[in-house]
């Protein structure tokens, strides 16, 4: 018997209160409960986290790997969304 039938889980760890969960890595486990336990042993042996999410890898929908994909184009040509786009006279404060 192999672990082939064991799904892959993506593990997200919140390192401390006030921060969001961050992707830590992945692991195999037969079910969600075991995935959580394995994640605790694998990714938080040194108090690296106060909260863990496990998500079946197959449940993740990802954008195309190509960063130059037209998918991201709408944001590429809009420099006016950044504060540095605007010219403000010297001496104007708190802006």
């Amino acid at each position: 018997m192999t672990t082939d039938g064991w799904p892959l889980w993506e593990v997200f760890v919140r390192s401390r209160r006030g921060l969001s969960h961050t992707h830590a890595g992945s692991l195999h486990a037969p079910d969600a409960e075991m995935a959580l336990r394995n994640a605790r042993d694998l990714y938080t042996r040194r108090m690296e986290g106060v909260s863990i999410w496990v998500v079946p890898s197959t449940a993740i929908t990802a954008s195309s790997p190509d960063e130059k994909d037209p998918f991201f184009e709408p944001s590429a040509d809009k420099p006016y969304r950044h504060p540095t786009f605007y010219e403000i006279p010297d001496g104007v404060k708190h802006l």
Partner: peptide
């Protein structure tokens, strides 16, 4: 296009 797969580091 949905990209789901089983090899990790999905996105």
């Amino acid at each position: 296009e949905q990209h789901t797969h089983t090899h990790g580091e999905a996105g």
